[in-house]
Write a protein that binds this DNA or RNA. Structure first.
Lengths: 225, 225
DNA sequence: ACTTGTCTACTTGTATACAAGTATATTACC
DNA sequence: GGTAATATACTTGTATACAAGTAGACAAGT
């Protein structure tokens, strides 16, 4: 059902359960429609039902799990509307953030962004695809924190699982290439203080999920609701 | 600690606890810094600790409660940054929403908005302040749903408790007057399909919290962190 | 006066038993 | 064969006992 990972030191049972369950759903080991049995998870992970339940309820808020009282909890199908709304939220917020950064970013912060991009190019060149996804998320997180909006990131983050699942399913191979060049162009625009360009580039950047979505809708229509 | 309200029919223990606890914090019956004792709440509300804990964890995500393991859970102080971030999120999203509505709103939906405003004016004229707050929230919710963004509303909603607390503390009396006239102007702009005006009006409208914030920071500086 | 250890009374985190509802298979009956 | 009642084996929701950690009171010793 879900692989039994290693419990990190100092990690509470709830965080442990959330981490493994979340990973399993996002990388599609647990497919839409799969039953999430509290008892089975409890046995597999070696913790009681209480922390399992807490993890399930968090993922329910991210709309990755659907809970039906007295019937069961299931991995949520990929919802067309949920993906579109998550995309809208993220695009709207992050476009505003880069515009704000055009005014207030520091030289030091700009340097950190370019460092991150250099790493992106390295992973890209060595075809380390999961590393690219990881550092892509890190790049966007940096924009929030540099803008003093860490709480906003945490909130928007809960909706991003929708994208991550699409990406895990998609084979669209030039995506990573585009992502990295997008990041570079956006950072250049921020460095130039060009709000209009930075905002427009971010909006365009965060519309790229549509290609993944269309591809996955054709290759795995059964995963959608 | 918290008043023992009536448990609605069909309401689960968790929802019941969340409702009462949430109300008590937002209307400032439970003041920042107050201890939220799971055991005491359990006794007061007549439900076990499990649903109480689930409610507490939800409010923790809304940043209305801070949980310190093995030490206690407390009503969160009003955080300057948390308020500003919640305001940014809401303003950004709802400005985009009214712009989108300029293109796609229907005549029927416009009618519903004006009906709501008529009710706002009625409550305003009869000085039913809590009713104004209730229907104000309803107006904004309608904008999300008309735009097909109910999920987005649910997510943004979790951050709005920050405002509600400020409003409960503020005595700023012309606020409600301004709110209603803002709503009317925004709706008029949407009806005219004027994106620029609608967006600008919404942005201005959602900056009004600043007056409440400044007033409360002076009258109750001890509630802030 | 001041430290230091200990005891007590809390706190949240976790495990587990039980309650209540649902879907399915099985059995009894026509 | 077909149908309805009934076990039965699940599910999540809730209650409760216990584990582990923290803070403060308080007394003993220096």
């Amino acid at each position: 059902m879900v692989r039994k990972g290693e419990r990190l030191t100092g990690e509470t049972a709830k965080v442990y359960a959330l981490r493994l369950l979340s990973e399993s759903i996002i990388n599609m080991e647990l497919k839409p429609g799969a039953l999430i049995s509290e008892n089975e998870l409890s046995r597999t992970l070696g913790v009681s039902r209480t922390p399992i339940r807490e993890a399930i309820h968090e993922l329910q808020k991210s709309r990755l799990i659907e809970v039906f009282p007295q019937r069961g909890s299931y991995v949520a199908p990929i919802s067309f509307e949920a993906v579109e709304e998550a995309a809208f939220l993220r695009r709207t917020v992050e476009t505003a953030i880069v515009e704000e950064l055009c005014d207030k970013i520091t030289k030091k912060q700009l340097g950190e962004l370019y460092e991150n991009i250099a790493l992106q190019e390295y992973y890209l060149g060595n075809e380390m695809s999961d590393k690219v996804m990881e550092i892509d998320n890190e790049f966007h997180k940096m924009l929030y924190t540099m803008c003093g909006k860490k709480r906003t990131y945490d909130l928007v983050r809960t909706a991003m699982g929708q994208f991550d699942r699409l990406r895990a399913l998609s084979l669209y191979s030039i995506r990573d290439l585009k992502i990295v060049s997008d990041h570079k162009a956006i950072t250049d625009a921020i460095a130039a203080g060009d709000k209009e360009t930075a905002g427009a580039l971010m909006t365009k950047h965060l519309m790229r999920y549509k290609l993944d979505k269309e591809e996955v809708m054709k290759s795995h229509p059964d995963y959608f609701k």
